[in-house]
Design a protein around this nucleic acid. Structure first.
Lengths: 152, 152
DNA sequence: CATGAAAATTCACACCA
DNA sequence: TGGTGTGAATTTTCATG
């Protein structure tokens, strides 16, 4: 991946509605080779998808909660169950398997504490979890879907 | 925001390249009124932007680290400094002010532990921080930019 | 809001260097 | 790989009902 590809990706990460002709001009190409590079980046799986980002406050999900989970169960079947339950809860937007003291970390978006309690109850009802600790975010100071291109 | 608007948003959150004519058909409208609704959702700030999502592994940032920060400083000037330093580090993709024992939480994406150390050193060089604890994610099981539309 | 349609823009690709 | 040209698709706007 050369400098031009990175420049193209930087533009698309910021605004994927930018016409190919504009992108081409900004990276110093004409439209066709630029278009071909974009196609190739899609085929190679570098560009996964193009999505609209919505405003959390306008959708009434201004509260973010991080949920740290510990468990005694470590079977494959249990994990698949856990993963499928999480996948079905739209309020859970991120889900990581961690190293260290917490086994899993979830990010949950909800309107308020009461709504979080609903998600929490649903989670513990559907999955056997040993220990859960929730931390509330007061403010989202930075959030970007743009990944650093420095290592590619 | 009625049911049709939500249906439109659900489609655009999933794939913003969907032609307006397709969206219209799926929500039971013709293109013109559907197009007007989309324009209005943009003007109202519900739709903030349209971006390309890239593959972390392909960009060599497959490792996610959560950094919990505590500080003794709580002045406005210090916070602005902290926020500007974080804004300038592209490896930091999320940044929250928390309630509870940790004051701030960062999500950092890097290729490996060594690269994380670089980001870590840069952070503590530029900002005065009392206590930092880093947790490594072994696996990203779920990650979506699609917000739940249930509360809107 | 539906229909129909036109103008402007952008995409997608064949072909050449 | 990059460039030129062109037909197709899409967006965007504007009539009328």
């Amino acid at each position: 991946m050369d400098k031009i590809d990175k420049a193209i990706l930087a533009i698309l990460q910021d605004d994927c509605t930018t016409p190919v002709s504009d992108i081409a001009e900004r990276v110093g190409l004409t439209t066709t080779p630029c278009w071909r590079r974009i196609q190739q980046l899609e085929r190679a799986g570098v560009i996964e998808r193009r999505v609209a980002l919505l405003n959390p406050a306008r959708l009434n999900v201004g509260v973010t909660v991080f949920v740290a989970v510990r468990t005694s169960e470590h079977s494959e079947a249990w994990f698949r169950k856990f993963a499928s339950v999480v996948a079905a809860i739209p309020q859970i937007v991120e889900f990581y398997r961690m190293s260290g003291d917490t086994d899993y970390l979830l990010r949950v978006v909800v309107p308020d504490i009461a709504a979080f309690d609903g998600v929490y109850k649903r989670l513990i009802r559907d999955v056997k979890l040993s220990d859960i600790s929730s931390s509330f975010a007061m403010e989202q100071i930075k959030f970007t879907t743009a990944l650093p291109l420095d290592y590619a």
